[in-house]
Amino acid sequence: MRYEFRIAGLVSEALAEAFPEFDRVPVPVPVPEETLFCGPVTDEAHLYGLLVRFQSLGLHVLEMRQLPG
């Protein structure tokens, strides 16, 4: 399954590389101060692990959702 995480603020390339399995999609106007990460999530353990990793890098998750398909 694929997931999308909406992170507060623009995430630099250095931090984005901590999530190599994810595509980083800067959100265009009108909300330029958010970053979208899209990518595969293997299972629940992976999902919760990701949330912990976002948190440990000081990244604030605003929203997450499973992508269709």
Binding site: I7, S12, G58
Partner: peptide
């Protein structure tokens, strides 16, 4: 600046 706070400040 709109960069993530932790990243911006630590950098």
């Amino acid at each position: 600046n709109r960069t993530t706070i932790s990243d911006y400040l630590l950098t």
